[in-house]
Design a protein around this nucleic acid. Structure first.
Length: 552
RNA sequence: GUGCCCGUAGCUCAAUGGAUAGAGCAUCAGCCUUCUAAGCUGAGGGUUACUGGUUCGAGUCCAGUCGGGCGCACCA
């Protein structure tokens, strides 16, 4: 709609002799009595024009030239808002557009020819995925879907490390449990992984090898088996949520020398050193972040000679630039909040365009069961497992609940609610609308023999002029803008909210307007409108990764 | 102590700096001989934590205060 109003308003300002660098806002008033769309441009420019805003608005109106039959009414209201009312014709033409575009409706071309990288989940294979990780996973997946709607060629990447100290501890943990299983008395350090899954892996090894590995105490084998089992379990869990990655980036790559015998990690140190941001002291190599106003320098290479996580992180991000991504999105949980500023600073120093990087941080998840709030703790092994949650409430509810709140808000996951097969449950409210339309179309075909999907009598839509019909049509017209907003804010939650209101408007239409029982032409028109609604619901569900049931 | 996020109806949450702060749940009152009532209509419910500031206009931006969450390692 922006594209529709913007040029008209711009040229009106121009012919009214108003020059301004203020941005022209097209907004949807909260109340329909203020029009379908409105602009505050007169309010914004009144001061610099030294004019009364209402008077200015009237003058601007005088210069507005819209295509015929698009705008029904323009008025000045309040302090100086200009409110626009669309014609029914315009609205129904948009509905026709939905039918013509089908699965493509709502897509755009902003990102055409550009590549976007979305990195998410990125859990190291040290244990099964927790509920907290699930939120980031679904968020990342939806963000990737949003980018795809705008024509970006999206790579979904998973960054992991199977070589570091945590993996060492994992190997030791499994080995100890294995030895225990073999009947040896062991001491299990509190620093090690306490989860039951460690015992299960040990059990698997025991079943396969018996006690034959108990003498060797060779860590590698335990580590490898554990990694294999855990990684495949992670992928299986993600698969249940329809989360699939195109690319798995192993941190190990960054320790591997290139043709000149230098590792990406070393190259980072060299480059930062050239720019004066590296120093050695206390036996370690430091990134001089104090030069950037931070309290402490950050260790890049530990006194043991191993890089700290920060160094490969920087090197990893350089590969994102080298791989030529126009947009680089990082999705992670609030516990990693301190991780990225150093990376960004380093990239800036090295001359990369950090404006291409977008960070989406999701806040934590608590689960409520029987009204009791459980707090997540990854340590102790009492963390809630994502798999258990999916078992409990299903994939659709899991996905939708994870993204139906703003990523900046703490998420209170009400397990009982998600399980409910009733209207209280937003998943069912949305899916019910879709199923209801499917049922309606089936019934219509049976009763009248009319199938809107294979008819081109779209012009009949113009017979629809009631409040409920126009509201539904308007909601459909709004969909492409919702996608763009969602993408800009990296906030799929907007989509959930939109779809909920679309479902609501549809239910009202369904309630008020008889369809199959209406006169033939009206019946057809309403079936077109219903079909278009189903199309938008489907397109939206696809972005959210929620299924669209034909019947319930 | 410090960095980030949050504080909005009884509960869970919305609100690109805009007009009378909105949904759902819960409560109360209506609507099925009629296309799925898993639905719809209506009512009640608010000092947007607090105090200042910025401006035509603040839940939103700025400063401070108070509460809650998450980080603050030569772990990742």
């Amino acid at each position: 709609m922006h594209e529709f109003f913007l040029p008209v308003i711009q040229s009106a300002l121009c012919s009214a002799g108003i020059e301004t660098n203020k941005q022209i806002n097209i907004e949807q008033p909260s109340d329909k009595k203020f029009g379908d769309f409105s602009t505050n441009i007169a309010l914004l420019t009144a001061k610099e024009c030294r004019r009364n805003p209402r008077e200015l608005a009237l003058e601007i109106i005088g210069h507005l030239v819209f295509p015929p039959d698009t705008i029904a009414k323009i008025e000045v209201a309040g302090a100086g808002f200009i409110n626009f009312y669309l014609t029914p014709l315009f609205i129904m033409q948009s509905v026709e557009q939905v039918l013509l575009d089908g699965d493509e409706y709502g897509k755009g071309g902003i990102g055409k020819g550009e590549r976007a990288l979305v990195e998410y989940v990125s859990a190291n294979p040290t244990g099964p995925l927790t509920i907290g990780r699930g939120r980031g996973g679904v968020l990342g997946d939806c963000i990737a879907n949003l980018f795809e709607t705008q024509g970006y060629e999206v790579t979904r990447e998973y960054y992991f490390n199977d070589a570091g100290r945590q993996m060492q501890i994992l190997g030791e943990s499994v080995m100890l449990r294995y030895l225990e299983r073999c009947g040896k008395v062991i001491e299990f350090p509190p620093t090690h992984y306490q989860g039951e899954y460690i015992r299960e892996i040990a059990e698997t090894i025991y079943n396969e090898h018996g006690t034959e590995l108990s003498a060797s105490s060779e860590l590698k084998i335990f580590k490898e088996i554990a990694e294999e089992i855990i990684f495949s379990s992670i992928r299986k869990t993600l698969d249940r949520l329809s989360i699939h990655h195109d690319s798995y980036f192993n941190e190990h790559t960054l320790y591997t020398p290139d043709k000149r015998g230098l590792t990406p990690n070393q190259n980072v140190i060299t480059a930062l050193r050239e720019r004066g941001f590296i120093a050695e002291y206390d036996g370690a190599t430091w990134f001089l972040t104090t030069k950037l106003g931070q309290e402490k320098d950050k260790v890049l290479i530990k006194s043991s000679g191993e890089p700290s996580y920060r160094l490969p992180d920087i090197a990893y991000h350089i590969t994102k630039f080298e791989r030529n991504f126009a947009v680089i999105v990082n999705v992670f949980g609030a516990d990693h909040i301190d991780e990225y500023p150093d990376v960004i600073e380093a990239l800036k120093i090295l001359g990369f365009d950090t404006g291409r990087i977008k960070i989406a941080i999701n806040q934590f998840v608590t689960t409520t069961v029987d009204g009791q709030t459980l707090k997540m703790s990854t340590r102790k092994g009492n963390a809630d497992l994502l798999d258990d949650l999916i078992d409990d409430v299903g994939a659709d509810a899991t996905r939708l609940f994870f993204i139906m709140r703003s990523k900046d808000s703490h998420l209170n996951f009400d397990v009982e609610l998600a399980k409910k097969q009733s209207k209280d449950n937003p998943v069912f409210y949305l899916q019910y609308a879709h199923a209801r339309i499917c049922s309606l179309l089936r019934m219509a075909l049976q009763e009248t023999g009319f199938d809107p999907a294979s008819s081109s009598e779209h012009h009949l839509l113009h017979l629809l002029t009631s409040q409920a019909e126009l509201q539904l049509g308007f909601a459909l017209l709004d969909y492409p803008a919702m996608i763009k907003t969602s993408l800009r804010l990296l906030e799929p939650q907007k989509m959930v909210e939109y779809l909920h209101s679309l479902a609501e408007v549809f239910h009202r239409f369904y309630q008020e307007c008889p369809i199959i029982k209406a006169k033939p032409d009206i019946c057809k028109a309403r079936l077109f409108l219903s079909l278009a609604t189903r199309q938008v619901l489907r397109n939206g569900f696809r972005i959210l990764g929620v299924s669209a049931p034909e019947s319930m």
